[in-house]
Design a protein around this nucleic acid. Sequence first.
DNA 1: TCTGGGGTCCTAGGACCC
DNA 2: TCTGGGGTCCTAGGACCC
Length: 420
Amino acid sequence: MYALVDCNNFYCSCERVFQPQLLNRPVVVLSNNDGCVIARSEEAKQIGIVMGAPIHLMEGIVRNHQVVVFSSNYTLYGDMSERVMKTLAGFVPQMEVYSIDEAFLDMGRLPYTNLLQLGVAVRETVVQHTGIPVTVGIGPTKTLAKLANRYAKKFHKDLGVHYLANRRLIDQALTATNVKDIWGIGAQYARLLTINGFETAADLAKAPADWVRTNMSVVGLRLLKELNGTPCAPWELEPPKKKNIATTRSFGQVTQDRSLLEEAIANHTATAAAKLRKQGSSARQLQVLIQTNVFRQQDRQYSHQIILELEVPSNDTPELIKYALKGLDLIFRPGYNYNKCGVVMLDLVNDSEAQMGLFDLSNRARGRLLNTALDALNKTYGKDTVQYAVQGFERRYRLKSNHLSQRYTTNFNELLHVWI
DNA sequence: TCTGGGGTCCTAGGACCC
DNA sequence: TCTGGGGTCCTAGGACCC
């Protein structure tokens, strides 16, 4: 049996833990650059705030309902997530952290009748330890656990747990679930399925396998099996190494300034290089991309990307910055209002396997020591404590973040103050 | 004025090899 | 005059996830 534990409106809940006066009020959290809504409290959902919508189109609702708006504070959410995961890990022999706010728990092989109670205990303990409310769905496959979780949110909101303990309960949940709400069914497949007469998960579960294979590839076939109770997804107890590592950002405002793009690219490269080192990888290719704002129809549009082959696989910050700036040089065109840029590390290899170049004369050992020292300092004293000059010091390209809360749990200067 | 960021997997088709 | 077939690798594009 699998349990899918997911934090309710996670980012909003994190903010509320430290500002309990916001309970029962509409709260939203915005994407980077204060652009779109990426998390909503129940109250915000009820007054019609749409997921993913640009906040500037909702000024009316925000004003009329006194919606509390936050910029995203990933330092806080990441730390709260760790605390939740740590609590969950105490309940089961093995678990899989699926995303920042979700985890699959291994509930054992047999359908014990007391799994519902276990789910309730998980929920109570997490809220006691962290203040974050969670929902628990339990079923014989990951897909059914997801489905049970959704069902719990819809029909057992107060209990916050649902257990698909037998055939009848599974059928009931399948029938109550629209195909578009199945894990793995996106907008395209939902349309395809509806056109072909599949309305609910129960309909899909009975679909002919060859039709599913033809129209939805083997991914669909696996989904079909999972809906019918046969697990097809293996446990991923350790997060697998990333195969690509990207750092891209929009600017706070559009710019034509080349030096600003250079600074931004250098910074994104430094960030991506640190991510590479953290997972013990080196890149064989580096992609640089720049683009104008597609929403500004009055502007001439330009977007371009280039992939550079590295002579030797690398995760060395200054070396990668050199490549990235060369890439920028190759694709930059003056006179455009740029809005976004980024770098992607591709074709990653394990550090230990990185092949030395025949003519590679730079002193890699020294470079490694420097990077290690730099990572350690930045970890202890905060990101960008030590950096390269080319990264600039003003962060002139930085994004908007006008509604940022404190880093209550990770920064000594931003602790919550309590007066008694 | 203001529209996120970072990933994964699968398939078809072409290039290439023997 | 007759002009194979099987395998692998790579890439672009499409689908999905949070």
